[in-house]
Nucleic acid binder design. Sequence first.
DNA 1: CTGAAAGCGCTTACAG
DNA 2: CTGAAAGCGCTTACAG
Lengths: 348, 348
Amino acid sequence: MTGTPRPRRITSLDVARESGVSQSTVSRVFSDDKRIIPETKARVLAVAQELGYRPNASARSLITRRTNLVGLITSDLTNPFYPLILEAFTAQFHKVGQRVILFTAGTGEELDDLLPDILSSQVDGFVVASASLSSAVVRECLRAQTPVVLFNRTAPDSGASQVGCDNIGGGRLVADVLLDAGHSRPAFIAGRGDASTSRDRERGFVERLAERGITDVLREGGSFTYQSGFDGATRLLKHSDAPDAIFCANDITAMGCLDAARDLGLRVPQDLAVVGFDDIPAAAWSAYRLTTVRQPLGEMIRRSTIRLLELIETSDSPPTLEVMPGQLVRRGSTRPSNFSRSHTGGHL
Amino acid sequence: MTGTPRPRRITSLDVARESGVSQSTVSRVFSDDKRIIPETKARVLAVAQELGYRPNASARSLITRRTNLVGLITSDLTNPFYPLILEAFTAQFHKVGQRVILFTAGTGEELDDLLPDILSSQVDGFVVASASLSSAVVRECLRAQTPVVLFNRTAPDSGASQVGCDNIGGGRLVADVLLDAGHSRPAFIAGRGDASTSRDRERGFVERLAERGITDVLREGGSFTYQSGFDGATRLLKHSDAPDAIFCANDITAMGCLDAARDLGLRVPQDLAVVGFDDIPAAAWSAYRLTTVRQPLGEMIRRSTIRLLELIETSDSPPTLEVMPGQLVRRGSTRPSNFSRSHTGGHL
DNA sequence: CTGAAAGCGCTTACAG
DNA sequence: CTGAAAGCGCTTACAG
């Protein structure tokens, strides 16, 4: 029963013995203590390298109370928007020595079911990039003293810091681009009803349309998915009073919408204009050429990372709110401004 | 200097005092020790709940030598294949109490640059799902006693366990479907050259074509991206000796290929057949209707998870190799078998 | 500049 | 069924 269950790990004590210094010194070398003289440091590092020593993160965390782990909470990764930010966030966090633990709820699953896992994960902080995670989760994290940054979503009264895009302003931009191109029967295909982004984009859109005299806006529910865009558009377009322009809550929904229009034999943008939100790479594909509102993702992610790090260092920092403007990217799915309905030229 | 830098954490000792038991008992309650009688357990849990106690994972890991963290190494998340497996893997691992740390190299970055981070991350094991991670990383992990499962890739002589799809067999299926439909000038657009998947798919394809008398196969390099498919197809199709069928190393490449064909005014599948590999959700979109080889992802991921867990429990288990067959999924981007070249009906 | 020693918050033999 | 105690592998005052 006293065999070798696992080959014993190399610890700082092994390195200390082998290089003729104290364990404290080894520790200081690996925490980059400035007081260690170069010669000592070099010798310790050489021995460590030779023995294959790596500091034990658990032991370190136990004392420092930092795990160097951040949790990233997203919804449905089949929406290309999330892989995009996931990749950027992990790159950013790796740069500052934090590793990223992923929490995702696939389509259908409820993210709140992950709550126990999330709460016991002992990360230094969270980025909540899920559109639909309930505010309850956010509240629980904050109660547990764990800093939270909300990425492109709001959670009223949560006291969490937020970084986001001006979704209302973005919706307004879309209203203008459609009215300027001469459209008169706009429609909106929503994302999940519990998502602040969808609500805000719709609100800006409807608000601006009303300001310019259009109060009758068709609407379909949706779920930020390709299929919901396809189905929503099919219903709208088969209607006797079909819209001549559809704003979708995000790009992937708009792509489903475009495919539905194509299947019905409609010409885009002559018969129907379509606008999305996000500017994911696929929006530029020649199958879609989607006009959309680009979110300043790079900047949003950089700010979120910095903000979360600040909160981790000084946990009593008051919550902040940063909102950045989106930018309209015109492509082939909309007509140019001042387009008169009599034009019939052009091609998909 | 003796202020309250951070509100002290609730420890098992606090719970012990408050519920009138020893610290050991609290620990046993939270590690689900069967010997604790229900009354004691209930009391301890009630107090813990009230105090908001959560066991400290670092302290636990320090003793158990398990972090309950697995590393998932992927490449470029803009290829929808990776988000797909990422989501499935995190779901699987969460079920068995493991959390997932993500390592990704975005387009252009070299994954090997992450090596130091990867090695010091102290996870219980790795799933390497990156097509292009060098075998050096795998070797280093194994040297550090950390179990590794290679997902849908090989690493010769690494000694790591592998779970994958029969890429060679898949390539052969594609050769048959194209020849059966009457094509005679096939081409291949590759993925990254350092990826075993691309090489194997090409090998099966070329091998089977040769068996059926076709030895002249056009070829373009690529990188598993939409753009490389678009560019490769454009070059191939503008050639005087253009192919009448293109097999792409994966679906996203095939989608770029289809868009290039569309832009050139070609009819699919009459003028050109296109086949991909993976069967990502977008392959079924009406803009593409891509014929492809479906990988049995669910099963592959389930097996990988189980295998890695086995290796974590008993690290001296010998490496295994599991290969599962792919399945051809016919859609609109290829003609049916026995299609005679004289047919000109049908539509995209 | 370096060392001896306390302690982070748990798990787990060892007793009883 | 429960408790006292050792110890996991580090960091970090405190000395010198």
